[in-house]
Design a protein around this nucleic acid. Sequence first.
DNA 1: ATGTGTGCAAAGAATTTGCACTCCC
DNA 2: GGGAGTGCAAATTCTTTGCACACAT
Lengths: 155, 155
Amino acid sequence: MQGDLENLKRDFERFLKSRGGKITKGRFEIIDMIANYGTHFEIEDLVRWISSRNKNVASRSTIYRTVRLLQEFGAIREVIKLNNRTIYEFVVGKQHHEHLICVECGKIIEFNKEEIEQLQEKVCEEYDFTPINHRLEIFGICSDCKEKRRENRVG
Amino acid sequence: MQGDLENLKRDFERFLKSRGGKITKGRFEIIDMIANYGTHFEIEDLVRWISSRNKNVASRSTIYRTVRLLQEFGAIREVIKLNNRTIYEFVVGKQHHEHLICVECGKIIEFNKEEIEQLQEKVCEEYDFTPINHRLEIFGICSDCKEKRRENRVG
DNA sequence: ATGTGTGCAAAGAATTTGCACTCCC
DNA sequence: GGGAGTGCAAATTCTTTGCACACAT
């Protein structure tokens, strides 16, 4: 929702200032663009999308640099690594979750399983390992694609 | 162990034949090289290592192509995706497992938690999703690195 | 004013590919 | 013999970087 985005921007401002960074128009316009683009994105797609909408928002370099900043800030996560593609997620206003990725149609399904999170913590304790972040990707075939396959077999 | 490797090669031969491929010396030498290199590797490192040992085994292209084949065959998994690096694992003779990755020293710790596997299956059932493979990466700081940090703080 | 941010084009890194040549079956 | 495999260099794709200029504080 809108309020989350405003909070994010305020916090991001603080984050920038705390590291001696500056508040520029471009950075905040990129945040708006990402918020409008949708949850999951690849940087090159985002670059094309932004420049198709408004040439003056930011250059490719600035977009890459800002995505990196937002990642360090924590507003963006690298959630899926498939072949040589990286799919990012804008996490604002979302609970932590993991992903099912359909290798046929590319659909991304989010899920959260608290027990899995807890078991991970347990594993980390066993190894005296301090977790910073994690990523669970389950690749497979989604319901729709299985349905289509059945149709093709019959028809 | 040695027997596993021989079995793997035999099965890989069948795999190649079944798809109209050919049994070449290079492909099997690459398997030996990977087996000797160690469990986890990045392709470019492997390329450098192979060419430093024996120029005549295979070219960079053949190594890339063979790693891909072995992946399709199932002897190799992409287990860690960190920044723009891909770390592969030679799975021969190993149980399925996931990884803890120390972001400070790069150490990779393998673990298996059967309950996590089961919960994943449950999630897939809930979404009528047929899983093909999955990857769980937990990034953090390992025991040794925490110890070193403590030492530095004191000393 | 001072130092950070930005755009651009060039540089890098990791892969893939086109093509001529070589080798299995 | 014929198609599959290989090596090489060129092409791709994604990302980072050097530098001159612009802007925020």
